[in-house]
Write a protein that binds this DNA or RNA. Sequence first.
DNA 1: ATGGTAGCGTAGCTA
Length: 264
Amino acid sequence: MRLVTWNINSVRLREALVLRLIDEIAPDVICLQETKVADAQFPVAAFAERGYTHTAIRGMKSYNGVAILSRLPLTGIGTRDWVGKADCRHVYATLPNGVELHNFYIPSGGDVPDPATNPKFDHKLRFVDEMTEWWPKTRSADHPMVAVGDFNIAPLEHDVWSHKQLLDVVSHTPIEVEKLTAMQASLGWVDVARTFVPADEKLYSWWSYRARDWRVSDRGRRLDHIWVTPALAGGLSGHVTLRDARGWGPKPSDHVPVIVDLAA
DNA sequence: ATGGTAGCGTAGCTA
């Protein structure tokens, strides 16, 4: 089973790029974040034509929004509100092989890495804390699960272009990394990309729009993740973080797809 | 230290 996650930064604007991804990698399941569209306006038709007739969509006008598009039937579709906000950051479903798939868009957290003065950063930390408590309370570590999405945190030193220069930049601060690591430990989640790419090798999934030339400056961060529970870890057969997609025109997303192949 | 770009929707918020 091939699964892909991509922060698309408006699914209506970049519908053609999702179709290109479908043509190039033929995923069974597509998880999108920042779809930025209410469910009634989601462009389901073009994806259904390509065979992605099973959907779990949770979106709102203008902001956030997550979606699962699948060639395989989905059951047990659900969504959850986090930190008391109905802001469309989580949708989940179960695949025919029994794998429960969770698609998240964790809050970005604003600019100032201080929860006392920046409510967005406080929201982000609470969001991750709530996930950490929720997993073991509602799910078992031996249940086959995949958790994907834009986690907006780059946990490892080589998940950012400069560990030292990003220590006080939201996405790589010690408190965020600590909380993400705690969440990972809650069920023993396995970080798929890092089982294929050694931890001492740079790996990014996001490059800012603000750089003059993202390729030349290459100041990226690995914000997008695929995690699996230990039950699935033995069946991982491939991973790609699709750097090329950062250059897909005419208007690329600032994130690139992360792809996994699972034995299940 | 600052400003740089992008999407939504048409001002200003969010990233």
